[in-house]
Amino acid sequence: MPSTALLMVTLGITLGTLTVTSANHWLTAWLGLELNMISILPVIAKQKHPRSTEAATKYFLTQAAASALLLFSSTLNAWQTGSWDITQLNDKLSCTLMISALSMKMGAAPAHFWLPEVMQGSTLTTTLLITTWQKIAPITLLYMISNHTEPTIMLLIGLLSILIGGWGGFNQTQIRKMMAYSSIAHLGWTMTAISIMPNIALTNIIIYMIISTPFFLLLTTTSSKTLQTMTTTWTYAPTTTIILMLLLLSMAGLPPLTGFTPKLLILDSLVTHKFTLMATAMALLSLLSLAFYLRTTYLLTSTASPTTTQSASLWRLKPHQNQVTATLTPIALFNITILPALPM
């Protein structure tokens, strides 16, 4: 992509998100979301391949439908209450429609159908943008209307997202699709807590972003796109393999690592608010996600020295970027070991 076009796209994505996060009027928020969507479409479609074009088309249609639903919901609320203020979403029907629109924007179940396909048709860098930066604006709007959301609806969407995220990623061999279902599952944890404890929900999504960012960036230094080719990473990038393994275990929420913290806080807040059965169901459904995280970790470690890999290496490997790995390794290690620094 030419440098001028890249600069315009970057400015559009950044300004769109900043417009939404600083808005207090629904039309301003809608404008920011539209700017964000239009700016990322060239990034998704930059590869000269039918899959990229298909991914960009699916992303555009889904986001346009969600934006139309958001605009309809805010207009209906203004008609009923006379206010366009984001924090004054008092009409129940408008609030339910707004939750549906924002869920579709983020890719939470049951409006998750577009996320795995779009991520599979994109590059790893674009996938990183979709799973992290593109979720900031909808999460911010959901956080701002959290006082008006119905806990039952949010808990149902969250539980369904955890179920579909774990079940969908269980049988995947493509890394990008697996991480798409992982994103859906983590969104489920955020949705369950946002109407009860919004700050904990925000902590959950922030920790997911800071864990997944070095994971995707380290994957871009290799040529791995499937679980089979991931097994050859140890032969030319042992440090990257170890860090990827730790990041996967942190995403799974195993206790010594940072990813365990938000899950513990969410379960604790649910039990405190008498949602013990829901907390139990979430903990059990998270075992589905844990299964494919552990499977990927096993594939990474089973080929470690002195065991020889049984998979054929890619015929054209990128030269390992030692400078990038040297920069990302301490960042990744910091991200997965900040558990003791977080207030409990």
Rank of each mutant, 00 (worst) to 15 (best):
I44H: 05
L15C: 08
L257N: 06
L61N: 02
M179G: 00
V118Y: 07
L339N: 14
L219R: 07
M209I: 03
S100I: 15
S3G: 03
V20C: 10
A291S: 08
A108S: 14
Y293L: 10
T296I: 04
W133C: 01
S305E: 12
H148M: 10
L70Y: 15
F260T: 04
G32A: 04
A56R: 00
T308C: 12
L159S: 15
R316T: 10
M154W: 05
P262A: 13
T126G: 13
L300A: 00
I86A: 04
A109P: 10
S183K: 01
S122F: 04
S94K: 07
I157Y: 14
Q174D: 14
T19M: 15
I145N: 06
A65F: 12
A281Y: 05
M179T: 09
L247N: 07
L267A: 14
I157S: 05
G166E: 05
L160W: 02
T325H: 02
A201M: 09
W167C: 08
A326V: 08
I130T: 05
A23Y: 10
N24F: 12
I164G: 07
S311F: 07
H25F: 03
A45F: 13
G16I: 02
L89V: 11
K92L: 12
S313C: 08
R295C: 07
I200H: 01
Y293Q: 03
V9N: 00
I44S: 11
L41C: 09
S22F: 10
L97V: 06
K263L: 12
G166L: 07
K135E: 02
L129G: 01
T57G: 01
S73L: 09
E150H: 08
G82R: 02
L246E: 00
P319G: 03
L290N: 10
I200W: 08
T280H: 06
F334L: 15
I86P: 01
T127M: 01
E54I: 04
L219F: 14
P306E: 12
C95F: 02
M197W: 09
T222A: 15
A78K: 01
T297Q: 00
A64V: 14
S67E: 13
G168Q: 03
K177D: 10
P255R: 07
T53N: 11
S3I: 14
T229A: 06
A56H: 00
T276S: 10
A56W: 03
K46F: 06
S182Q: 01
L128K: 03
W114K: 08
L284A: 14
F215P: 05
G121F: 09
A5F: 07
L69C: 07
L97E: 06
R316S: 09
T308I: 15
Q120K: 14
L227V: 06
S73G: 13
L71N: 03
L89I: 11
T231L: 02
S74Y: 03
L156H: 02
T239F: 02
Y181H: 09
L159H: 05
P319H: 10
A185S: 13
K177L: 13
F334K: 09
L267M: 14
I210H: 11
